[in-house]
Nucleic acid binder design. Structure first.
Lengths: 226, 226
DNA sequence: TCGCATGGCTAACAGTCATTAGCTTCGCGC
DNA sequence: GCGCGAAGCTAATGACTGTTAGCCATGCGA
């Protein structure tokens, strides 16, 4: 009953408290994190509230003390996701105007996001169809279009500047986007390549893909981990 | 109440019969086709038997006269899908041994499949997690691995022959695969590029990606449609 | 010490859905 | 004409699940 110490194991018996640290304030975040992982593994429709509850140590109905609905979880996760990718890309492409460098920066941001936030990325890619129709869905679709357009623009600028040799800029941009997004499906932190090495490799590939030949400019090779 | 004639216009008016041609034997195929489309659009779990039934003009329980279960539909569709991609790739890479040409052929087959059978491809990519565990799932996973390995092998052979300049063959093969698979997500038959033009373009991109410089060899440009 | 907000639980509801049971009709071979 | 299988339908079942209602413990502020 002693207020403070009773919560987080006084001194002699450290374990048996169900909530070890005072992360009660972050309960909602904890739920969101759990939901993200389970949504990705089983899909939105394949995920039960009971499963999310189990992951955070409570029963399904208790989740509603922290969250309005299952759909709200999806909306919040997707919102967070799309905002983050976007910010990363804008920060990357805004910094320079030299075509090759801009392409490298864009690809780096794209791949880095898909490697470091692969769960968010996978959710964004797979669960769009489970967002209830409405203004939020429209917003997400618009932001997605804007993201793609930004990549197309990078390629087209390079072509216009005579630096890239590309027959179909839109399709080539799509190829770049797709090959970067694929990373989130198979990348493992404990794999052959570190995130940095991967990012560097992909920005090389991007430069090759658009037919610009100074493959080394603009980035420093972080080295192989293999 | 009159049994025969009341239902389907006797003999003088040939059309109004609900089942126009004798495709009754193909009812199962018809159901499979409908299921494929709806599975892709709404996801396996988001698809009801009622929806599939509606697409072929019957109520959900009637489907069970032609099909054992919903899961069987998925299994059969995925089986068909994986077999087809595989055959296409084997046919493509088996024909030659020159690295660049082999790469071109592999990429062509890969992209062509993902453009021409985009529904099958999307199903294979998205609904793996809805296959019930068992020997069939194992088979699919194994075939998938084999498919990826075939691509890796093409890249590695080119590197070994000194024709490709690639730092990380596995990762590069992944990039090639991912960028080709992405096609099935956005490709539209009525878009800017025809399938042939797309396939040619992607095989060019592939050659560039691996750092082989004879981008024109081995394929004839089918021309732009734009 | 008391009350109340917080956050948990169980029970119950309402809806959905795959699947089964059982009935009817149609068309074909005899 | 007749029987039968094919193929459809409606009704029912049984399981699951998102969500709500309502109850209880805890701990903090007054």
């Amino acid at each position: 009953m002693t207020p403070g110490p009773s919560r987080e194991a006084p001194a002699d018996s450290p374990a048996p408290t169900p909530i070890p640290i005072s992360k009660a304030r972050n309960r909602r975040t904890e739920i969101l994190d759990a939901a993200l992982e389970i949504f990705v593994r089983h899909g939105y429709l394949g995920t039960t509230m009971e499963a999310i509850g189990e992951a955070v140590g409570m029963r399904a109905p208790s989740l509603y003390k922290h969250v309005r609905s299952k759909q709200e979880l999806l909306v919040e996760l997707m919102s967070r996701s799309i905002t983050e990718v976007h910010a990363a890309l804008d920060a990357a492409t805004g910094s320079t105007s030299a075509p090759v460098l801009r392409l490298r920066r864009a690809m780096e941001a794209h791949v880095r996001y898909h490697a470091e936030h692969c769960l968010d990325a996978l959710l964004g890619a797979n669960e769009l169809s489970n967002l209830e129709p409405g203004p939020f869905l429209e917003r997400i679709l618009a932001e997605r279009d804007r993201y793609e357009a930004a990549f197309v623009e990078v390629v087209e600028c390079g072509v216009a500047a005579g630096v890239f040799t590309v027959e179909h800029p839109k399709t080539t941009a799509r190829a770049l986007l797709d090959m970067g997004s694929g990373v989130s499906v198979w990348f493992r932190r404990d794999g052959e390549l570190s995130v940095d090495a991967l990012v560097y490799h992909y920005s090389d590939l991007a430069v090759r893909l658009v037919g610009a030949d100074d493959a080394g400019a603009g980035s420093t090779n972080p080295g192989r981990i293999t």
